[in-house]
Design a protein around this nucleic acid. Structure first.
Lengths: 335, 335
DNA sequence: GTGAAATATGCAAACGTTTTCTTGAAAAAT
DNA sequence: ATTTTTCAAGAAAACGTTTGCATATTTCAC
């Protein structure tokens, strides 16, 4: 399994190994004939350049660390796909890892990535405290936060406009005739959640609606969280809302299940609006109307920003906010 | 952003840099005092060992290449999650890439990974021809094929028992009273598909059923494929089957959508059985009964096998076949 | 108190590249 | 025919580690 090196090629071609390097790098200071000959020998010997040796001297691995909370999550896996694609187009590869929303784990992964000499890090933060916890590392490695709005923090991030997205959602329901809209989901979990809740509140204010929340003391996350909370909600006396605005599609999926079990029909008995537009939402029989986070664009902008930061050794930061759009399907009805 | 090296630490601690290396590696041939002192200095200076330099001399990167057809696919993303987890537990990291079922792309990625000096490759092959196309590389890098049964091929793979899984499925439907079971899906697409079709045929034979297939000339894949084909199927005259056994859950999802549109109720009017148990299948309102591919186990076995191959420089191969299980939900009914 | 054994540390090679500097030869200009 | 210029190719340093070998110091037995 011993790999053939540049020296083996040099010997076979009867030149010095620096000449081989030049032949491969496309340098101009080499004669046409020798280049052709060397390239021929390389092919015959199945030579592949050793990227780690190159990285040593070039001081660049062309590797990017991608730290997610979990690829096993429809939003993140789709994002990961586009990120890989965008990275590949720019000549980078991705080292993937999962923090499982554990901040200690996240910090460890950061150290690991720095040790691996990645050129930059793409981070979907584990929680609202991530920025503070990671601050010591941020000066050591170009980093971009994805999906999370850091507000006034002096670090680069790209995020959808969560505030605006929530507004759009409320306005949509309002125009459908809904006046009693329940906001369903965490409110302090992350800046993302905070902003969505704030957007909801602002829109209610503007439209003269009274905001309604449901207590959110549950700690389990996502679909299960939605299911448990909704189950409890639906078993209370009479309902005072005609629509639910779920903070995430995964929550909405849980709500759907609870509704199903309680004999509530969506959208006939209850309108349901999500946020994220994960793949599952487009499924037959689900057809959740939702606010889209444009994942491909998110990935594109993230890579542009990060690569720019790497190549120009920028110490500044940029905040990129992408506008969300409503995807109308079949979970909300006019009343 | 200049990183501090072992030499900087050595200087600060007043020792040679080999001593620092020994202090960090936990070698015994160093005095307790100097080790403590050096460790202290390392901490103060935020020293992190440069993994790529280490890789050079150790001739091991502790990186594994994971080549998927696409992370943006519920089965693969779940698999990727467990693979990362298992790899992490063994001190490896994952370089992720997507072949998009393109064999040229797949071959390129293989070369790329070899250049990056990964210690091994985990491959979800792009197609049935992958093995042949990649053969030249397989002697150069420890590789394990995942999810695909290579039959008599002398390369390591881990796969679920697709043949047996299909049998289990047919038997289940049979016991529910079904006698006219349509097999829905590709049959020559990959060994996986071939084996499922064969298992179906074998079970029919044993139970005295006549196998039924639907023509599969469509080329689009997965959910769309299922939808298109099912739509055509349902618009034909009368139906001669009471149940459909879909080759994959994604196909089944497409079938569901078509059924919905044509006013066919599942399971009342038609029983539907899937294969894979992707996350979506467990969703409320979907509740697809299906044959499970145990992803976590697949990942575990894949890493055991690969790491073993790497560490013991095994040139042999091992075929690991995992038994599938039926996950009963709500898409099949007794008749 | 001497020699041997054990222990702690330093030196230098090696890993496979890229790139600067140097050299030698050929081509061009005088 | 000589000098200058251009060009191709080699030599060697550098990247940041690990580790075998050499060396210096301590510990121990006699």
């Amino acid at each position: 399994m011993k790999n053939v090196t540049i020296k083996d090629v040099a010997k076979a071609a009867g030149v010095s190994y620096s000449t081989v390097s030049r032949a491969l790098s496309g340098s101009r200071e080499i004669s046409h004939d020798t280049r052709e000959r060397i390239l021929q020998v390389c092919k015959e010997m199945n030579y592949t350049v050793n990227t780690v040796a190159r990285s040593m001297v070039m001081k660049s691995t062309r590797l990017l660390g991608l730290i997610l909370t979990s690829v096993n999550n429809p939003f993140m896996s789709e994002l990961a796909y586009y990120i890989d694609q965008e990275a590949h187009m720019r000549g980078y590869n991705i080292i993937l890892c999962n923090s499982s929303r554990d901040m200690d784990q996240e910090r460890e992964l950061f150290e690991l990535m720095i040790g691996r000499q990645v050129d930059g890090i793409l981070l979907c933060p584990a929680g609202p405290g991530s920025y503070e916890r990671l601050r010591p590392y941020l000066s050591r490695i170009p980093t971009i936060f994805i999906g999370e709005n850091l507000r006034e923090v002096p670090e680069s991030y790209v995020s959808v406009d969560n505030f605006r997205g929530a507004q759009i959602g409320v306005e949509y329901l309002y125009n459908l005739g809904h006046r009693d809209i329940l906001y369903f989901g965490r409110r302090r979990n992350s800046t993302t959640h905070q902003l969505r809740a704030e957007g909801y509140a602002a829109a209610c204010e503007r439209l003269g609606l009274t905001p309604m929340y449901c207590n959110n003391t549950f700690s389990s996350t996502s679909i299960r969280y939605g299911y448990d909370l909704a189950k409890q909600l639906f078993s209370q006396q009479e309902r005072r809302f005609s629509a639910i605005f779920a903070a995430t599609d995964t929550n909405a999926l849980g709500i759907m299940q609870a509704a199903e079990e309680m004999g509530l029909q969506i959208p006939q008995d209850l309108s349901l609006l999500g946020f994220d537009n994960i793949r599952d939402s487009g499924l037959p029989r689900i057809e959740l109307t939702t606010i889209e986070q444009p994942k491909q664009l998110l990935a594109n902008v993230a890579l542009d920003t990060l690569v720019d930061k790497i190549q120009n050794e920028l110490s500044g930061y940029s905040h990129r906010i992408i506008s969300p759009a409503l995807i109308e399907r079949n979970s909300c009805r006019k009343i």
